[in-house]
Design a protein around this nucleic acid. Structure first.
Length: 596
RNA sequence: GGUCCGGUAGUUCAGCUGGUUAGAACGCCUGCCUGUCACGCAGGAGGUCGCGAGUUCGAAUCUCGUCCGGAUCGCCA
């Protein structure tokens, strides 16, 4: 039996002085001074110092047994600490509990790592003993914020007439897009369910059913390789609305984010968010998810150097490529060695062929690394366009358009981080709009939907759908926060004919379309409202709000880079019987692995 | 699947031009200590140097292979 606690560990203050209390918790630290033993008692709310005195000899003797991470209950009296003994670090720092009775609920072995913030232990060890890692206050705080986030989200949607409707976790596999996680069907030999990459088709069907405004906090699954900001199972806020256009969805999303920011991190943010077209984003930041917390926007020198004698520049422009520059402030005095190292790094990390620069400093004036091939007034014009001042450094890359923008984008981020140009306290929300509807895949020799096959094209671009599909813009929008894509959505196609045309464009013929998405096309026959929506990445947003850089710190039980759970060792091999039930036979190499 | 980085005490790391008994800090254990809160002091235990092979008189150190972890590219509509 455990004693019922009267308070938690961050509750007691001077106002409670003299009260008899019961506390439960874990021993965080023990400071045994001989005649007196101090214990920091920890629970998820905080820490309270409890004290054992030698004069209570039996109790003191028992207290000497206490070790880190023992789980205990104590009865005691709240006492005021002396002036010089107050600990300003703790909310309970003005008091301590003079223990009158002690119960040890559970002893603990020495933990593989210390239960405290800021540990340097490998992620492997932390994941293996995740239940211990989750005791650490900084991880607990992340999950507490996550809980607030859910609360805030539900309250926002409830207040705005949205319905929370669950969609199936076992659904039809749609090979379009990411790889599906498959679940075999015992009752239907040879058939498989897929876990949803997103409830996309279901939420559209809910619109057809007339549910008008839907949201769901939902797990999604993608069987692709992992990154620090990518887990195989992740959580989305999935939203769909009928009789709306882009503006309505964006406005709703902004309202949601405003409330979440206020409820979780107490930031009162401004709406409406900044907007930028896809084209603009690529041309000024080299990415469709620009981090606008710092400048370093691209300057395009292509026209200035098109006819220059420097062949790398003129040839690049001839072939339709671009010559781009960014101005790094106050780095005009960068030495030769540093620039060489930077060049090598840029080549290695971005794949750029080389790095050209213009240095502006008091000693050398304006100095371009390829100055002898360029006219002075060309360099001057470049400096002017780059808006570079004395003391600045202009970094230049040249190459095919398909590569140079993204390379420059990477270089921009590299410089932003290296020279501390990023305002870490800022939350920069940004809408990116006017995405291309499709892009051509050289690998598959066909067009791929940039967003998904249900995204509506812009009406004014419809006439280009057949002869110039890559020029067609879509009614899609992405929400970007501090350089992370935190959400994306679109106005959908609600017309059967247009949807069929779209499938055709993507190389999915009528039969195939009917087989894969027939249910959706059929639904559209019976009166589909215009509709659109968005999906927001919960894990990523929380990662940003908690100031982290890894999704693993905001998910209670995450997977490692190989999509395994190190704690419970999943995925794992299963019995032959189980496979038999599922009508599955392993390939030879898989069987061998299973037998090891 | 490719590239890069790492694997030495419970933890973080040092040792790596090959050479006596593999070190430090934190943690852990024991003792002392009545005002600590990173308690202090004294002492102590703790190692398959990821694994396998090779080179060598001799390998933590060099070579190859392999396993494990991470970052990144491909991939992620």
């Amino acid at each position: 039996m455990s004693w019922k606690r009267t308070h938690h560990c961050s509750e007691l203050t001077l106002e409670n002085t003299g009260e008899e209390v019961v506390l439960n918790g874990w021993v965080a630290t023990r400071r045994d001074l001989g005649g007196v033993i101090f214990i920091d008692l920890r629970d998820r709310y905080g820490i309270t110092q409890i004290v054992f005195y030698e004069t209570d000899d039996k109790l003191h003797e028992k207290a000497e047994e206490l070790r880190t991470e023992y789980v205990i209950g104590i009865k005691g009296v709240v006492e005021e600490r002396g002036e010089e003994n107050i600990n300003p670090e703790l909310t309970t720092g003005g008091v301590e509990i003079r223990v009158t009775d002690l119960e040890i609920y559970s002893k603990a072995e020495t933990t593989p790592f210390e239960i405290k913030d800021g540990i340097k232990t490998s992620e492997e060890l932390r994941l293996k003993h995740r239940y211990l890692d989750l005791r650490r206050p900084e991880i607990q705080d992340n999950l507490i914020l996550r809980s607030d986030f859910y609360q805030s989200t539900r309250s926002f949607f409830y207040d705005n007439d949205f319905l929370e409707i669950e969609t199936p976790v076992l659904m039809k596999s749609t090979p379009e897009g990411a790889r599906d996680y498959l679940v075999p069907s015992r009752v239907n030999p040879g058939r498989f369910f897929a876990l949803p990459q997103s409830p996309q088709t279901y939420k559209q069907l809910l619109m057809v059913s007339g549910f008008d405004r839907y949201f769901q906090i939902v797990k999604c699954f993608r069987d692709e390789d992992l990154r620090a900001d990518r887990q195989p199972e992740f959580t989305q806020i999935d939203v769909e609305m009928s009789f709306v256009d882009e503006e309505d969805v964006m406005e709703t999303t902004e309202g949601l984010m405003k409330k979440i920011m206020s409820d979780t991190v107490e930031e009162e943010i401004e709406t409406s968010f900044e907007r930028m077209t896809y084209d603009q984003a690529i041309k000024t930041y080299g990415t469709d998810k620009p981090d606008t917390r710092f400048g370093l926007e691209f300057a395009d020198f292509s026209d200035l150097v098109a006819n220059s004698e420097f062949k790398i520049f003129s040839n690049t422009v001839d072939k339709g490529g671009a010559v781009l520059g960014i101005t790094v402030p106050d780095q005009g005095d960068m030495g030769r060695g540093a620039i060489d190292r930077l060049t090598e790094r840029v080549q290695q990390e971005t794949g750029a062929a080389g790095l050209i620069y213009i240095k502006l400093n008091e000693d050398d004036g304006v100095k371009c690394s390829v100055g002898k091939f360029l006219k002075d007034d060309t360099v001057e014009a470049m400096v002017e366009r780059a808006e570079a001042d004395m003391g600045d450094l202009v970094l230049i890359l040249a190459g095919p358009s398909t590569e140079v923008y993204s390379q420059m984008g990477q270089l921009r981020i590299m410089m932003g981080k290296e020279h501390n140009l990023i305002n870490e306290d800022a939350y920069n929300f940004l809408w990116v709009t006017d995405f291309p509807l499709v892009e051509y895949s050289k690998e598959d020799h066909r067009y791929h939907a940039l967003h998904h096959p249900f995204t509506a094209p812009k009406p004014e671009d419809l006439d280009k759908l057949d002869e110039d599909p890559e020029e067609v813009r879509s009614r899609a929008y992405d929400l970007v926060l501090n350089g992370y894509e935190i959400g994306g959505g679109s106005i959908r196609i609600h017309n059967r004919e247009l949807q069929t045309r779209m499938f055709e464009l993507l190389g999915i013929d009528e039969d195939e379309a009917q087989k894969r998405f027939g249910f959706l096309l059929d639904a559209f026959k019976y009166g589909a409202p215009p509709h659109g929506g968005i999906a927001l990445g919960v894990d990523r947003i929380i990662m940003i709000l908690t100031g982290g850089t890894s999704l693993r710190d905001v998910i209670a039980f995450p997977k490692n880079q190989k999509a395994q759970s190190l704690m419970d060792n999943s995925p794992d091999f299963v019995d032959e019987d189980q496979l038999d039930d599922l009508h599955i036979e392993l390939k030879k190499y898989a069987k061998e692995a299973a037998q090891e």
